[in-house]
Design a protein around this nucleic acid. Structure first.
Lengths: 123, 123
DNA sequence: ATTAGTAGTAAACAAAAGGTTAGTAGTAAT
DNA sequence: ATTACTACTAACCTTTTGTTTACTACTAAT
């Protein structure tokens, strides 16, 4: 193992495998390229298909469609159809459970902000 | 926008674009399939190439090599060579800056743990 | 009548990511 | 002398991911 310089370890050996296993589980659900982007848009009140596609820059209908299906399977959103609306309206509503993603999103957003500052000021 | 059911928004419209932009920046650096797994292993004291490959199940030498290069470019690790060791020893040392990833990793690990409990007990 | 918007899906294709195999060059043990 | 370990890399191939185009079917506006 680390013989030379870095004796500092942020996680213990035991925590390493725990962390690896737990983040493995998290990344399996939420680690896809688009998953969190979709969830952020959903949690911000964008609930319609075309609205989501406009909000999430670069996503194609095919990929968005797939993401929404996976997210429903994982209980992160509910697909709700309103037949009363003129051309049948479909809404994708984030579930109560999806609120638990807030911590992950906040942590990522904070880090992204700090990182951008770092690379724009220093380098 | 969401006319029907879900009036609750976790993020405001303004926060949405901020979140999307900031997480975009974060995911660009840290959103790859292997990036966080490598960082967890590094932060746990695994600093040698083959040690890392053994610790991170499923990663190939080619991919690990690429990840390590990218991580060094992003100031998350330093490649240190010790020519005094028998077959020239190379160590990958996490930087001070890499400590800032702790929040992201913790948030993901926590969520992963909760999610696993959820799917094993409920469904 | 034509254009545009709703919410998608299927097929065909391109690009990105990753795996596998083999090989380098040096040391150290059996 | 052969095997094995270190730290990789190049070439080739497969898998995954994503894009594009076209199409459905219905509504509302111009």
């Amino acid at each position: 193992m680390g013989e030379l310089i870095g004796k500092k370890t942020t996680f213990s050996e035991l925590q390493c495998s725990k962390n690896l296993a737990a983040t493995e589980d998290a990344l399996y659900v939420v680690g896809g390229k688009w998953t969190l982007r979709v969830m952020i848009a959903l949690l911000s009140g964008h609930t319609r298909f075309n609205d989501l596609q406009r909000t999430i820059k670069g996503i194609s209908a095919r990929v968005l469609s797939g993401e929404l299906k996976d997210l429903e399977i994982n209980d992160l959103l509910k697909r709700v159809v309103d037949p009363n609306q003129k051309p049948v309206a479909v809404e994708y509503i984030p579930t109560e459970y999806s609120q638990s993603l807030k911590d992950i999103i906040s942590a990522l957003a904070d880090w992204g902000l700090k990182h951008k500052k770092k690379i724009t000021t220093h380098e």
